[in-house]
Design a protein around this nucleic acid. Structure first.
Lengths: 238, 238
DNA sequence: CCTTTCAACTTGTATTTACAAGTAAAACAA
DNA sequence: TTGTTTTACTTGTAAATACAAGTTGAAAGG
């Protein structure tokens, strides 16, 4: 055998079916081929097929109904990633504008929004930036992002106007978000937020402190987000 | 006729093992009995045991290593399920108290916190309850829960003082939380919240509107949570 | 004494067989 | 036509069996 690493059959079947869903061969609401059909197509037995389908269920690609079949649910949405939801109407990407308040610059760490830092992070310093996001020309988000200055050449000279921070990290540095932890609290706007959000005193603001885990082990992104939820609420699935 | 559907063997085994982990019979790092041992104990075959163990892996209770065994990972932190985190110190279960403001009662639906209801939900009415949760004898959470009154016999007469709502649903009605969606916003306390939280006017409060998906298709739980984050923040992973 | 080998575990993969239970449409009877 | 039954699917559960592959510690060898 030329192949050292044996990939299990159920995994192969899973990969095929999964890619067929993500690539649009099967659409939302479609009925997958029955287990027995899949058996003959892939030349394996039912338990093997079922193992592949079980995984697709767990990951949210399909739902199954006894007596009926396996129904395609679609591509699962990112869990825990909060997005905006309008109180009046849905918002597209068109009316979203990002204004860089503080361009990425190298600083010393102050503190990471109540998250403890390790020695390596403190020593390497951080890339600091502040952004204000406007929806329909109204400021809704203000966020501070701090990234350890570890193996990110020429990062501060990148252009962030069009691309999002995470797009840049993924494309140029192969850094991908895997998960993270967050703390949420409700505060009243301070002087700075009153100015940014153009609101009066006593205005309630949603604050998120996030520690974002990446595919680089030990490499975390720290982010503090303030959100004026008067017109738009934060939306997420879990 | 109340037809009691037979509970599968793999589910029984799962329940036993799961409760042994949550109740502290097995601790973090412990090795579970081997599959063959579990087979003889529960008088089932390996595929059945493995199905139960697979689920425990998926839910994060255990990890398994070929040739070694199944290692207890502990009680998983719910993804998207927000929990409390103290600004001063960690909080145990001891200093958590739940006070039922409005006992479960059957009502007509008013509205489901901005989530649209379908015809079946509206017709069946809802089980309504209000709870106030205290941490160290200080009120921190106030939540309103609305559950469609569909196939939940004797629900309103259950005792919720010790068991949590979701424990009751899982144990007596086989209803399990699968996921859901939520909207978060920051508001100022109204009269009622000022009274419950014992705070003055203008106090910021975190509000969550949640639509919780269950294993019963089309059966959703609607929940509105108000949180005084002055001393405790909401914590979640994603 | 240390190293290697091996035997006895563990979980992982896969097949085969059987029946239960839910669904939907065809076939049938009124 | 209308309502019921049957039938042919679907997925769900469960057993018995076999072998592969990783781990560990004890026995055998130097």
């Amino acid at each position: 055998m030329p192949q050292n690493k044996a990939i299990p059959q159920h995994r192969k079947v899973y990969e095929v079916l999964r890619s067929h869903i993500t690539d649009g061969v099967f659409h939302e609401g479609d009925l997958l081929p029955s287990e027995n059909e899949l058996c003959t197509v892939h030349k394996v037995t039912r338990p093997t097929i079922r193992k592949a389908l079980d995984r697709l269920v767990n990951e949210g690609y399909i739902v199954r109904h006894q007596g009926k079949g396996s129904i395609v649910k679609g591509i699962p949405k990112g869990v825990g990633i909060l997005s905006l939801t309008g109180t009046t109407s849905a918002i597209g990407q068109d009316n979203l504008l990002t204004h860089i308040v503080v361009k990425p610059e190298i600083r010393n760490w102050q503190e990471a929004f109540t998250f403890p830092l390790n020695q390596r992070e403190v020593e390497s310093g951080c890339i600091y930036m502040e952004r204000l996001r406007l929806v329909n020309n109204k400021p809704v988000f203000f966020d501070i992002t701090m990234i350890p200055n570890i193996n990110l050449p020429r990062f501060t000279s990148r252009n962030f106007e069009n691309k999002s921070l995470f797009d840049v990290l993924r494309k140029y540095y192969q850094v991908e978000v895997k998960g993270g932890e967050q703390k949420l609290l409700s505060i009243v706007a301070d002087e700075r937020l009153m100015e940014y959000f153009k609101v009066g005193p006593g205005h309630p603001v949603l604050q998120l402190n996030r520690k974002i885990e990446t595919n680089r082990s030990g490499f975390y992104i720290y982010s503090q987000v303030f959100c004026n939820t008067a017109e738009y609420a934060l939306y997420g699935i879990f």
